[in-house]
Design a protein around this nucleic acid. Structure first.
Lengths: 123, 123
DNA sequence: TGGTATAGTATCCTAAACGATACCACGAAG
DNA sequence: CTTCGTGGTATCGTTTAGGATACTATACCA
C-alpha cells in the first residue's frame, strides 16, 4: 500500500458503503439466491426505493447478478456473482475487526466506570 | 460471520468511512507522526474544518493519538495508537481488493470495446 | 368486474455530509 | 506596534444520501 495512493481503499469502500449494502451482501452470502420480495422481508426497514437503488449499484459493480423471469407477477432473483464472492474474505476481515472494536469500546467504558467509581470512592 | 449480524461490518465501516479518513490513515501509516499543518499539506484539498473533524472522530474511536505541546505557535502531533495499528492489515485487505476491482473494471471495459468493435466489424 | 401479488418508478422532503470563508488567541520576531 | 505562523472555531451555503408516499403494468383468480 505504501506506494499506492489510498484511492484503492476508497475504491473498495465505495462499493461497500451505503446504508444497506453490508446487510444485502450478508443476506446473499447466507441465502445464495433471493427474490426481491424475500430480500425486502429480511430487511424490514428498507424502503423499496433503497433496495432497488442499492441492488442496482451492486449490479453495476458486478457484485450481484440479477436474473429476470418473464412471468407475471414478476419474478426477479438476486445472487452474488463469482466476482462478488471475492468480497467475502474482505467482509470477514472487516467484520472481525468490528468485533474486536466492540470489545475494545466495552473495555474503555469499563475503565471509565472504574475510574469514575474509584473517583467517587475518594470523595 | 454467518451467525453474527452484519452490524459488525457496519461498525467497522463507520470508522473508515468519511471522505478523508482513508487518506489520513495512510498518511499516518507511512509517516508515523505528523503535525496538523503537515497533514494539511499532504492533503491539499482538505479544508481545515474537515481535517479537524475527521481527526476528532478518529481520536474518539481511539485510532489516532493527539499530542498537544503547550507552546506558541501551537504544535499538535497526530499518530496512530497501538490499537489504531490493528487496522493496518484490514486496510491492506481492502486495498488489495480495490486493486483487483480496478483491474476487473478495466477487463470489463476491454470486453465491451471488443464487443463493440466486432459489432461494428459486422456492419 | 374487481382484487391480488410482484417488482419496480416518480415525486417530494429531510437530514447529514461536505465545503467556503471569516475569525480568533498567542507569543515571537522585526 | 505590527506582522506572522499554528491550530483551531463559527457561520453559512450546497450537495448528497436516505426516507415517505403514491403510482404503475400485468396476468391470474374469484
Amino acid at each position: 500500500m505504501e506506494q499506492t495512493p489510498s484511492c484503492r481503499v476508497e475504491t473498495a469502500l465505495e462499493i461497500l458503503t451505503g446504508k444497506w449494502k453490508p446487510s444485502i451482501l450478508l443476506e446473499l452470502i447466507t441465502h445464495d439466491t433471493l427474490r426481491f420480495s424475500e430480500l425486502k422481508r429480511h430487511l424490514p426497514n428498507i424502503t423499496q426505493k433503497m433496495l432497488t437503488a442499492q441492488l442496482r449499484e451492486l449490479e453495476l459493480n458486478d457484485i450481484v447478478h440479477r436474473e429476470i423471469y418473464q412471468v407475471v407477477p414478476p419474478r426477479v432473483e438476486y445472487s452474488l456473482t463469482d466476482y462478488g464472492k471475492t468480497l467475502i474474505p474482505v467482509l470477514h476481515a472487516i467484520n472481525a475487526w468490528g468485533e474486536k472494536h466492540v470489545d475494545h469500546l466495552a473495555q474503555k467504558e469499563m475503565l471509565q466506570e472504574t475510574t469514575a467509581s474509584s473517583a467517587s470512592d475518594s470523595f
